[in-house]
């Protein structure tokens, strides 16, 4: 099973590549649509601004293929901006449009210190495959100025919450084949590697409305 890692020129994807190498999982950089032909899973590690990422993806003719990938129920993991782009709009770039596969918006922290930089806890709101084999409310490394809005905290796809300066917001999301994390598992030590391993181990089957959360895909 080969995992594609989106390289749109802006993000720091090398740490994700290093993590997959460390976990001994085949990885392939995706620089153009043709690169997506022989992969089974897709990771989008995004950093930088919402609009810049959208523009760079469009320039490389990757935007629509990624959107099609997601919409055709294939496994997707968005990291940081890669998670935010699942939503249509961000207050960072009012003109730009993300993939829009989850409803809700991304907004700027109303906090004294921006960006949030450092290790913060994630509280899982339901049992799920991503956090299996992780203890309690683990620490992950966060680095961001924008976040999925607090209102989405009760959305059905919200998987985990983090709290920063009194703002509680979705830090992990999951809907069928789509997974997203605001934090950087590839930079979160052993816990982060375990989370990545969980996702890589998931067989990609979508189990909708599952009652037994120990099943893959839930």
């Amino acid at each position: 099973m080969t995992t594609g890692i989106i390289d749109y020129g802006g993000g720091n994807l090398y740490s994700v590549v290093n993590a997959l190498n460390y976990l001994e999982r085949p990885a392939q950089l995706i620089k153009n649509p043709e690169d997506m032909q022989n992969i089974q899973k897709l990771i989008f590690p995004g950093v930088g601004s919402f609009a810049a990422a959208v523009n760079d993806l469009k320039k490389r003719e990757l935007f629509k293929p990624i959107q099609a990938w997601i919409e055709s129920n294939r496994p997707y993991l968005g990291i940081c901006l890669g998670m935010q782009l699942l939503f249509a709009r961000s207050s960072e770039s009012p003109e730009a449009r993300g993939f829009g596969v989850l409803s809700g918006r991304v907004e700027k922290f109303r906090a004294k210190r921006i960006p949030q930089i450092g290790w913060n806890r994630v509280k899982w709101v339901r049992e799920n495959y991503l956090s299996s084999r992780l203890q309690g409310e683990p620490f992950f490394y966060f680095l961001h100025s924008y976040h999925v809005s607090e209102e989405q905290g009760s959305a059905p796809w919200t998987l985990g919450l983090a709290e920063y300066e009194g703002i509680t917001y979705p830090a992990a999301v999951h809907l069928e084949n789509i997974w997203g994390v605001q934090f950087h598992p590839e930079k979160s030590g052993q816990v982060g590697l375990q989370l990545l391993k969980n996702w890589l181990d998931w067989d990609g089957d979508i189990v909708v409305n599952c009652k037994n959360y120990s099943l893959p895909g839930c």
Binding site: Y22, L143, Q190
Partner: peptide, 8 residues
């Protein structure tokens, strides 16, 4: 270092 150390 980046190959085996997974913190920023």
């Amino acid at each position: 270092v980046a190959r085996e150390i997974f913190i920023p």
